[in-house]
Design a protein around this nucleic acid. Sequence first.
DNA 1: AATCAGAGTATGTCCTAACAAACGGACATG
DNA 2: CATGTCCGTTTGTTAGGACATACTCTGATT
Lengths: 246, 246
Amino acid sequence: MANQLHLSIDRSSPVPLYHQVVQGIEAAIHTGLLEPGSRLENEIDLAAQLNLSRPTMRKAMDELVRSGLLVRKRGVGTQVVSSQVRRPLELSSLYDDLTNNGSKPTTEVLTFAHVEADAATREALHLAAGAKVYHFTRLRKVGGKPLALMENWVRDDITHIDEDLLKTQGLYSILRSGGVNFRLATQRIGAMVANDYQAPLLETEPGSALVTMERTAVDDTGRNVETGHHVYRGDSYSFEMTLVQR
Amino acid sequence: MANQLHLSIDRSSPVPLYHQVVQGIEAAIHTGLLEPGSRLENEIDLAAQLNLSRPTMRKAMDELVRSGLLVRKRGVGTQVVSSQVRRPLELSSLYDDLTNNGSKPTTEVLTFAHVEADAATREALHLAAGAKVYHFTRLRKVGGKPLALMENWVRDDITHIDEDLLKTQGLYSILRSGGVNFRLATQRIGAMVANDYQAPLLETEPGSALVTMERTAVDDTGRNVETGHHVYRGDSYSFEMTLVQR
DNA sequence: AATCAGAGTATGTCCTAACAAACGGACATG
DNA sequence: CATGTCCGTTTGTTAGGACATACTCTGATT
């Protein structure tokens, strides 16, 4: 039970100590060194072994508990959560998701415009009347098979966007390059049936099931940077997430 | 700018100080006392005003940042980012959601059985061959209108469950009364079209859009307590959540 | 006048220290 | 034998201090 996890802590690294611990324990869990259900040593001993203070050790474990990898119980100890914990739903775009999975997505830009924002967009992005936005629709395919139809509105005072850029990069990657630090996003997931416009583009039948997602993303300065309305083929996409009780 | 938030901290309360601060600031934001975009005073002054140490104040603000209500920036300060931040997706059941919203849901129990678990269920709940589970399907209505069709499998070594109980209480409420402390859940959200079995029950047409959700919930001892497959009417239900970049 | 350096400010990280509360098992008691 | 009480263990909460780092603004220099 006294699982010896020999992590190496680099005090000269710019990476905070607690985060090094997080990465170390995550790695130990994923490589199977720490088995699901096994108990960790207590915080104080672990901290002593790594020459860290208890608060630092605790902060690391806090993160792991939050992300659902560990479970703590007062008076008992801390153990690795059993079962196969999936990647929690993070602030990432579809493009990120797919490239992380090893697929190679392609993007077609169906429409692209730099126009005055309509009322709904102004509301979503908190813009004043007369402000302009980039408005475009894209079709994303994986392995030649269409997967998602995406319509987005992006404020134009962040970075320049054009059609060529959108073909080669995900939207979030472009915005991050433009200096945007995303902090949070609100999204809503639902369902609809494909209409006559969507069906041929997604190479499916009108009346087939689609997953819908509406999302608005906010950056660290509080600006609502982007809002979008996406639909995914219901037979090949679903949202998977891990919820952690706080 | 120096927004005086006169919170009252009760040191004799069993509620931790940092959590009292969280609740106080949350309340201030929701009542509009703290406006979106406004800057808070710095951590040290706030802590001093409430007679708290900086770590305690910081822990409170950490939680608010995690939940997406505040945004911090080194060298600058902390500000309210709110806008219309919705309730994040928590580990709650539909019944909880609805009762919290003031609606009055009713539940019909369509089938109920105490049976040996099939292979898929044994895998989902990590049960040994021959173990028995409660298996039941329920139809949930709000205002007389059907909203969700739910099929669940629950291990039987937790608490007794019967049909009458399910009519009057949500499943999670029953399990919590049985001593289960939920810690995390993995869920997957997708879409499908209603089939001939689902459509009449949900009082909709075959071929209309449904939101699907599969969920497996884990308690604090690492047991997979419950797994379920739910479908919701796409025209009246969607999942809303706030994602926070860590 | 434009640019760069530095002071000031606020959050970020890390430490030592202490007490509280819950859990589980051992032990004593009826 | 059953039940309740005590105690050691482990996490939970809180304090107070120190230094690091990033950002903003101002003043000095070119």
